[in-house]
Simulated scan of single mutants.
Amino acid sequence: MRRLSQILPAFWIAAACSNGPPAADPREPPWVARVNGEAITQQEYELFLHQQDMEESLALAADSEDSRKLKRDLLERMIDTRLLVQEARRHFFTVEAKEIDREVERVLGQYPPEQVEELLRKQRLDRDGFRRQTEQLLLIRRLLEQEVIDRQAVSREEVEKYYQTRLQEFVRPEEVRVRQIVTRTEAEATALRQKILNGASFEDLARQYSLGPEGKRGGDLGFFSRGRMPPTIEQAAFEMWGGRVSAVVASPYGFHLFQLVERRPARTLSLDEARTEIQRRLLEERAKEAETLYLRTLRERSNIERDLNLLDRIH
């Protein structure tokens, strides 16, 4: 059986980390770092710098220690990304084209079609470039999920200890669940209120007439506590009794009718109620620590070179 050092490329078992580049190849594009022999070019760095909206900050701090620190911190982030992509490929992770397409559609679909091209232009990307970046992010996500996140666990005892030592975090203020109908005119709201008092369904009328986006849900605003809504809306919501309909309430958004669905008094969540949230918090903390350690290990076994002289000249 061959030894590990005979199977793996040499750069995976190297531990050297140099701050100065070797003699430059005149045919090679200028690079600010090389990660296991793979260049992060000056052009890639400047594009990433632009995409992070840091150009203005660097201009304000030009030729200062703050500027150098910002640029070096950004370079280290790029090095981390390159290390993770390389490790994903070493594990033979791949992302299917249809998965990339779905993610591209999910991200770009959050914006009106007429804004998408402008957003890409501001990022100095075309759709192919955005797709390549998306593929890298999905590769990294798959790597971290399998090698880091999915390996974390939280015990029942840890959940209980977290709950007992942070009980105050699970105190919930009084909350109300309210439906609303929003109209353009006071006359419309008054007419709808009379229909409800005569027995019409608040939910049905909200679906038919409300201007608010929650209208399609029967006007359901869900639960909220004090301080979460505009004062006029909050006052009407918390002064109502169950099932009753408010008077017409005017606001900058139009004219409102409210119906109280449910009221929750202030209380402390039980351990069972808080368990899922506590597990999520603990797993996030643990995964963050594990990701930091994972990256540190990748760095220790990798060959990373930096051209800090070139980096300092970038403005």
Rank of each mutant, 00 (worst) to 15 (best):
M1L: 11
R3W: 12
R3A: 13
L4G: 05
W12G: 07
C17H: 15
A23S: 15
A24W: 09
D25W: 03
R27I: 02
P29F: 06
E38Q: 13
Q42P: 01
Q43H: 14
Q43I: 05
E44A: 14
E46Y: 02
H50L: 14
M54N: 11
E55V: 13
S57Y: 01
D63E: 15
S64N: 02
S67P: 03
R68D: 14
L74N: 07
L74D: 03
R77I: 02
R82V: 00
L84M: 11
F92Q: 13
E96I: 00
K98H: 11
E103T: 13
V116H: 14
L125I: 06
L125P: 06
L125Y: 09
L125R: 12
R127P: 04
R132D: 02
L138F: 00
R141Y: 00
R142E: 01
R142I: 00
E147F: 00
A153R: 12
S155Y: 00
V159L: 08
E160M: 05
Y163G: 09
E169D: 11
V176Y: 01
V176H: 01
I181C: 10
T185R: 11
A187W: 02
A187T: 13
A191I: 09
F202Y: 06
Q208M: 07
S210C: 06
G218M: 10
F224W: 08
S225N: 10
G227D: 04
P230N: 09
I233M: 11
E234K: 11
R244E: 14
L260V: 04
P265V: 07
A266L: 00
R267G: 09
A274F: 07
R275K: 14
I278V: 04
R281Y: 03
L282W: 03
K288G: 12
E291K: 15
E291L: 08
T297W: 05
L298P: 10
N303Q: 13
I304A: 12
H315D: 09
